[in-house]
Computed example of a mutant assay.
Amino acid sequence: MDWLQVIVLAIVQGLTEFLPISSSAHLILVPELTDWEDQGLAFDVALHLGSLGAVLIYFRQDLLNMTRSWFGSLATRQLDADARLAWAVILGTIPVGLAGLAFKGTIETVLRSPLWIAAGLIGFGLLLGYADWRHRGQREVTQMNWKDVALIGIAQAIALFPGTSRSGITMTAGLLLGLSREASARFSFLLSIPVIVLACGLEAKGLIQSGASVDWGFMAAGVLLSGISAYLCIHYFLAFIKRIGMQPFVIYRIVLGVMLLWIFI
């Protein structure tokens, strides 16, 4: 691995982790277009840690309020808005955890085909386009009920299908349930925190077991660049969708899916 590869992969990961355009598709397409060797498990962990740091920093005040209220709810059994949101994030993560354990082998073998990824990009991209086109909702995150949380959590589990995009499918579900664009995106970003923590834990476990060597300079750069690009992505994406909506991302997904079909068929 060289520094150009470090920079490109870190920026790609930071951006695609939170945009509704599928990080898995990009991490397949970049090596295909550049003929780079696999970056290795250690660098993957670093990139995910950078993305995790970005969302933790961006939503630090929200997370502090949610954590304080969540612990308070355990003692008082009373739920304010922040405690409800904290419980929503926890409960919304359960479906993807169960689905990952149940279908891990299939996901890592059969469904990793570029053709499946292209199908996910196009199919779920069109669904996102429909949800945004018919969007009428103005509900905020604090107005979600437990049925909303369950359905968005199930939608997040569908994102294990490569090419779907975790952020894309959770935002789609939010829009279909009547949340505003900003609320759909905000809840999607908060849901990403436990998912990334779980993914980093599994990857770190595999890294320790493999005994692979680590280039700490590349790792540190990957964390920093991924974190910066992810933070900027979250900030500008929230402003962008309020004015323009999701349709530019729908078009991009379809173009990328067609590109994958053209390369691999």
Score class of each variant (00 low, 15 high):
L191A: 08
L225P: 13
V197P: 04
S167R: 02
A230W: 02
I208Q: 04
Y231T: 10
E203G: 05
L198E: 04
F187P: 10
S188H: 03
Q209D: 14
L224V: 15
I154T: 12
G211Y: 00
A221F: 02
L198S: 15
F187L: 11
E203C: 01
T172I: 09
A199K: 06
S165L: 03
W216L: 14
L175R: 09
L176W: 09
S180L: 04
Q209G: 08
G227Y: 09
S210Q: 04
G201N: 01
S180D: 09
L160T: 10
I169H: 03
S226W: 04
G178Y: 05
A204E: 08
A173T: 00
L202C: 01
G153F: 02
L224A: 15
R186T: 15
I158L: 13
L191G: 12
T170G: 13
G178P: 12
A220Q: 05
L207N: 06
S210F: 01
Y231E: 06
V214N: 11
I228Q: 08
S210G: 15
L151F: 10
I158Q: 00
F161H: 07
A204C: 06
S184G: 13
M219S: 13
L151T: 02
R181W: 12
S210A: 13
S188Q: 03
I193S: 10
S226I: 00
L175A: 13
G153C: 07
P162R: 04
R186H: 14
I169G: 02
A212F: 03
A150G: 07
T164N: 09
A157F: 02
F161I: 15
S167W: 02
A204P: 07
G168D: 04
T170I: 06
L190F: 05
